[in-house]
């Protein structure tokens, strides 16, 4: 049946057992890609004509910023699936995605600030992208804070899913309005990232880093979701068995 795989995908137990096999491979892939990407990007990619070596922070900044935004959509879509099909696992993914996304947003902001010092001479400028990123961080924090406020997990799940969806509708409007606001107040001087005009010798290590970050993100998301699944299902038989095996030191 077409629905059967969907049903099984929704099963926390099936997810837990299946993803246990994936985790080491994802960890390996992200380790290799991130090592190759950072050595290549930091050590071998050429210097930028204008910014010198300071541009190299894009190898962290750009992938983090990419995933920060993508992570919000992953969170919202998981929440929507949970709301519509009442799938437990989907809510767990949503809840796991929130702190990971918030951390990535923070990393993007933090590396942006470090980059800002040599580029603009100050750690913080109200650049359109940075401002949007800051608002994205607030959106993440809102979801996390709302989740913590409820004592009942199931209510928290639904409330967060709804808030994430409302945020999703708003994100394009927020980004557009911040862009408009920025052009109004100061003309664009430096475009932070224009991957289209970037030289291939700089771009390939960046691409490696982006793919590496995606692997790392997936690994973290799955690992965190597995923890949440165990916490939420701990009274079920299969989790009890799983824990008992873990205690015996079995693998």
């Amino acid at each position: 049946m077409a629905w059967q795989w969907f049903h099984r995908l929704g099963s926390p137990r099936w997810f837990y057992e299946r993803t246990g096999v994936w985790l080491p491979w994802l960890a390996l892939a992200s380790l290799v890609l991130l090592t190759v990407g950072s050595v290549w990007g930091l050590g071998f990619a050429p210097q930028d004509a204008k910014q010198g070596n300071s541009y190299r922070i894009i190898y962290i900044h750009v992938p983090a910023a990419f995933l920060a935004l993508a992570g919000y959509y992953i969170m919202a879509i998981s929440g929507a699936i949970g709301l519509i099909w009442k799938m437990k696992l989907s809510f767990a993914v949503m809840r796991a995605a929130a702190p990971i996304g918030a951390v990535l947003t923070f990393v993007a902001l933090f590396t942006g600030a470090i980059w800002g010092k040599p580029t603009w001479g100050t750690y913080w400028v109200w650049d359109a992208r940075i401002t949007s990123m800051l608002i994205l961080l607030f959106l993440y924090i809102g979801v996390i804070a709302l989740a913590r406020a409820f004592s009942r997990e199931q209510v928290a799940d639904k409330a967060c899913a709804l808030l994430a969806l409302v945020g999703t509708v708003n994100i394009p409007i927020i980004y557009k309005s911040v862009d408009w606001w920025f052009t109004l107040h100061q003309p664009a001087t430096i475009k932070l990232t224009q991957s289209s005009s970037i030289d291939p010798s700089m771009f390939y290590p960046l691409l490696t880093m982006i793919v590496g970050f995606y692997c790392l993100y997936t690994w973290t998301l799955i690992a965190h979701t597995r923890t949440l699944v165990l916490q939420r299902e701990w009274r079920t038989q299969w989790v009890q068995q799983e824990l008992a095996e873990g205690n015996r030191g079995g693998d």
Partner: peptide, 12 residues
């Protein structure tokens, strides 16, 4: 007893 996983998800 706690609802064990049988079908996988909640009742659709």
């Amino acid at each position: 007893e706690f609802a064990d996983e049988v079908g996988g998800a909640y009742a659709f």
